[in-house]
Design a protein around this nucleic acid. Structure first.
Lengths: 214, 214
DNA sequence: CTGGATCCGGGAAGATACTG
DNA sequence: CAGTATCTTCCCGGATCCAG
């Protein structure tokens, strides 16, 4: 919690969210909803448990998160964003947008979680058939995935829930998903590189951006 | 240059701009335009010179800035943002917006530079007289200030230049400026707390937000 | 199993002095 | 003016251990 000691809006913001890991914790809570300590660890590979605990303390005293003990038999502590924490959505969105071109480099040895992909999907997807009934495209599986919901010309991306039945379930190596959702390859081309489409291919096409014909 | 090693748009962005001081250097270059090493130091009180040098190396190799040696008699090296560096404007804007409420706490012992104020002014100001000819409100002095230019319903905030003649020059303690430009106090009230208005008070009123009548 | 605390080594950040 | 060199401090990352 070192401060820049500058009477500047941005410097004061960075005093609160500029520490290492802090904004990635916000990413987790924004894309996954309320989480337990262990859920956060799974979504933040590489973080040490003491660091996570320390960041959560800082974020709680900074008014970004709250903790709520669930009553038995759950008996876990749920960590949620406050309104002020949710207001960081704009920062997260702009960082994600700026970093999108960096995803074209291959993952190399990087970790990957499908739900991380929910952030860029929000501005990569479109509803190509606004008149049709709602369509749900599921990426990944219920343990680590996200649902793209297209309806009435708008697209929303949410965590998977068991009760929502997808029209199509999509699986692929992460870099292939990037190519597909940035319009660099067609569905047909992606299928030769590991894309698996289980269900309505039309529903998938509906949310994909226009293919680049460079 | 430590990496999170996550195949995630936001994590990769933070690999490049998440280090301490980096985004504040971008702030300086965005608000001040091309700078010399020493200019940056003045705008970043608290930074150690070796750290600034190291960050600039990282940012150059990351494609955020370029350095251009000016020919004699200037003989200085100018540091500028690349297009990619300028694209961080959205991130800077959202951080600034999120941090704006934090400016209501008093400066305490914080450093202050008038040109830092240029960022929040971009969304705090409005043009209250779109039909009138352009008006220029100057905050501070040419050595550390900024000009608010209102014209045709749009407001722009730029670094002071000697050739631009302001309609009004405004000086005040930083926290009074915050109160004034967030609409919490009137010009009259601010003047009892140190606000000095030199020139057309109308030009100042033109760019101020509606006063809160809570 | 969850939600940490504790200890330690290495490296980044910070302060200061000095230089071409 | 634009850094480098050096030293100190403290944060980060990894491992291990522990209470409920």
């Amino acid at each position: 919690m070192r401060s820049y000691n500058q009477y500047c809006s941005m410097a004061r913001a960075l005093d609160l969210v500029g520490d290492r890991w802090t904004l990635l914790i916000v990413r987790e809570l924004l894309t996954q909803g309320p989480c337990r300590f262990t859920d956060l660890r799974r979504g933040l590979p590489g973080i040490a448990s003491n660091l996570l605990a320390e960041r959560l303390r800082d974020m709680e005293s900074g008014g970004l998160i709250t903790r709520d003990d669930q009553p038995p038999p759950v008996a876990a502590t749920l960590i949620s964003l406050t309104g002020r924490g949710r207001d960081l959505g704009g920062v997260v969105r702009e960082l994600t947008r700026w970093g999108a071109p960096l995803m074209l480099d291959p993952p190399d040895g990087d970790e990957f979680r499908m739900h991380w992909f929910a952030l860029p999907l929000r501005f990569l997807c479109r509803d190509g058939a606004p008149g049709e009934p709602a369509a749900v495209v599921r990426l990944g599986d219920p343990y680590d995935g996200c649902d793209i919901v297209a309806e009435g010309g708008r697209v929303d991306v949410r965590p998977c829930t068991p009760d929502r039945r997808p029209d199509v379930t999509v699986t692929a190596p992460p870099e292939v998903l990037v190519q597909l959702f940035t319009g660099q390859v067609s569905v047909a081309a992606a299928m030769t590189e590991g894309l698996v489409v289980d269900g309505s291919a039309q529903a998938l096409e509906r949310v994909l951006p226009q293919e680049m014909t460079s």
